[in-house]
């Protein structure tokens, strides 16, 4: 879908959970259950997408936030990624005649010193680290089916030394 006002992108705020870390912002889509990681530049741009700021406004604000030079091409690069990640209310196509620059092209154009100002939105997958989140052996309600949701667990014994702990027997 194309926005009527193509110069004032609006960040999606509904159905997402935002978690700010020291160097990046994490966004979890409660509908698609996908998680995204925005570096500082992408997060700054996303924050200024309030539906009123123009692309130029956003570039200026981002430059000010990060104390770095940012031009409209950088903002377009971010909007493209944010749109693909469904983090904008509507995806915004680039205006005619303005070719979309890749990250590599942006870096070449801006120089290595401006790398910090290159916005990056990455999708993150459930890591191995979560494997130990819940476990067979977790407390459970005897006779309930809750243990089935835990990998490799099947039932909640009501008797014996493991009563009330998800088990595999």
């Amino acid at each position: 879908m194309i926005m009527e006002d193509q110069t004032a992108p609006k960040a999606r705020k509904e159905g997402i959970l935002i978690q700010e870390l020291s160097d990046e912002v994490l966004v979890y889509d409660l509908e698609s259950h996908k998680a995204h990681c925005l570096n500082k530049a992408a997060a700054a741009i996303w924050e200024h997408c309030d539906g009123t700021n123009s692309i130029r406004d956003i570039a200026l604000a981002m430059g000010s936030d990060l104390n770095a030079q940012a031009d409209e091409a950088v903002v377009w690069h971010a909007l493209d990624q944010l749109g693909k990640a469904s983090l904008l209310e509507q995806r915004i196509p680039q205006p005619d005649g303005k070719p979309r620059l890749s990250r590599r092209e942006l870096m070449r154009k801006a120089g290595i010193a401006a790398m910090i100002a290159i916005p990056v939105v990455t999708s993150i997958l459930a890591p191995k680290a979560l494997a130990s989140a819940t476990s067979c052996g977790s407390p459970c309600t005897p006779a309930s089916a809750e243990c089935v949701a835990i990998p490799n667990c099947t039932f909640c014994p009501s008797t014996g030394p493991n009563a009330g702990r998800c088990a595999m027997f």
């Binding site: 959970l17 978690q19 994490l26 890591p127 191995k128 680290a129």
Partner: peptide, 19 residues
């Protein structure tokens, strides 16, 4: 990188659980 991913996911998971 897996440790960083863990840090990210713990952060998100914890935010969900807090709610």
């Amino acid at each position: 990188a897996d440790l960083l991913d863990g840090y990210r996911f713990y952060s998100l998971h914890n935010a969900l659980i807090e709610n």
